[in-house]
Each structure stands twice: as C-alpha cells, then as structure tokens.
C-alpha cells in the first residue's frame, strides 16, 4: 500500500478544468517533482492535495484511507501539510508566532521548534521579527519550517525556489536534502527550474493543460522528451513541426 495514492483526480475553477484525471503514488522517503509550464495545473493539484480546493472527481488516499472529503485542517491531522505558493506567511505575526501556530495545531512527532531551527539556522536571529519584513529566502524557510512542525507523512512544497536568489536556492535545497535523507516523509515538490527538479527528484510528473504528460524516474527520459511534455507537444505534433 502506497503512502499517498491519487487516482483520476479532476479539479475545476468554475467552467475551467484545471486538473484532468491525474493519478500517481508516493512512498515514504520518496520525492516526486511536479513540473510544467505556467497554467499547467500544478498549484491547483497541490491545493487539492492539501484540502484547500475541493476536487470535482477522483480519490486521494493516505496510507489506504480515503481523505478526499477532508478539509485542510483535517488533512494536517491526517498527515499532509503544505508550504504554499507565495509562502503565505502570517505577515503581522513574528517568525516565532508563525512557527508556534503550526506546532500547536500539528501532530506530535520528531519535528519540534528546536529541530526546525537546527534545519534552518538562518531563522534563529529572526524569531521576534514580523514575517512580513523577511526576505524571500527567509520567508520560504519559515513556510517549510511551519509545514515540518505539523510532523507530516507527506509534505507538499509549492514553487520553493520561485523569486529567490541563487544563493538562497542553494541553501534551501541543502536543507531539503537533509529532510529527504531522513526518510521520514514523502515529498511532493513543484519546481520551475527543470535542471534542479530533475536532479533532486526520485520521480517526475510533467503536467500540461491539467493532464499528466509524462511520469517516471528522471533517468528514464531524454531532455527532449521532458521538454516536449513540458510544453504539451505530442509526438505527432513534434514530427509535423
């Protein structure tokens, strides 16, 4: 039985179908990277997995238990937490308060305040600083720390490197590598940087226009196949071009 199992998931925004029949599985200790152009449906998929968006169809199961109807806060208690796109910190609250809210409402486990501050030492001197005053990299560290404090089985990381400096991205991925190496949870990562995504993921899922265009270990695909899937170019179209 897989840790996370998504079957035929469909999501709509009014008349627009943003995610069409997506399915995948995720094991503990595994990293699945979701890639795709803007508007491919990646963030809608992540929000649906986190319980922030109600799916139009399909099934989400965590360790075999159907959690499709659970709301966001219930999914956190079940074992899924998310670092959302745009970080979405509580801007008027300090870093410490942001982390405390997550710690108080999450599950008990190995991730506590001390361990999070050990994984992201750059937050240590910023504990009393309002989150609205942080830099992009610092905000992302708080957002991931907040998600870790829920002690999830599956952590969803949406657009982790978007808008960050190369140095900040490097530091962030070092912290993520340590989290991955611990093998405590499955990671679903949305990443715009293809090279970074392919280097970090155990498996990759490429979306275009809401569909899964390609799925498997990065080593199984050529760069051309991934690029074609990224832009939703099918074989016959590529040949025609």
């Amino acid at each position: 039985m897989s840790l996370l199992s998504v079957t035929d998931l469909t999501c709509r925004h009014g008349l627009l179908t943003a995610v069409r029949g997506i399915g995948f599985t995720l094991e503990r200790g595994e990293t699945l990277c979701i890639i795709g152009a803007n508007g491919a449906g990646k963030t809608t998929l992540m929000r649906t997995l986190a319980g922030a968006h109600v799916p139009a169809g399909g099934r989400i199961a965590l360790a075999g238990r159907d959690i499709t109807a659970e709301r966001a806060f219930e999914r956190v208690r079940s074992g899924i937490s998310m670092s959302p796109e745009g970080r979405r910190l509580f801007a008027d609250m300090t870093v410490a308060e942001n982390l405390r809210v997550a710690a108080e409402n999450g599950r008990a486990g190995g991730w506590d305040m001390d361990r999070v501050l050990g994984a992201f030492p750059q937050l240590q001197p910023l504990l009393d600083v309002p989150a609205g005053r942080l830099s992009g990299g610092q905000r992302q560290a708080v957002a991931i720390g907040r998600a870790l404090l829920s002690n999830p089985d599956v952590i969803l990381l949406d657009e982790v490197s978007l808008g960050l400096s190369p140095a900040a991205i490097e530091g962030l991925y070092q912290s993520l590598s340590a989290i991955r190496e611990s093998g405590e949870m499955g990671i679903v990562l949305v990443e715009q940087d293809l090279t970074r995504a392919l280097g970090f993921a155990d498996r990759v899922l490429c979306m275009a226009e809401g569909r899964s265009e390609l799925q498997g270990p990065p080593a199984d695909f050529t760069r051309a196949q991934i690029t074609a899937a990224y832009f939703g170019i099918h074989d016959d179209e590529a040949r025609h071009a």
């Binding site: 922030a52 979405r88 509580f90």
Partner: peptide, 18 residues
C-alpha cells in the same frame, strides 16, 4: 495565535492545521 493567523491569511491558517 490561531485567530491572528486567520486574520492574516485564512487559507494558510487552515493549511497549518487551524
């Protein structure tokens, strides 16, 4: 803390378990 989190971003508050 929970109420202030909702005030700042209700969806994000839900996503950390509030």
């Amino acid at each position: 803390g929970e109420s202030q989190a909702i005030r700042d971003d209700e969806e994000a508050a839900g996503s950390v378990g509030v």
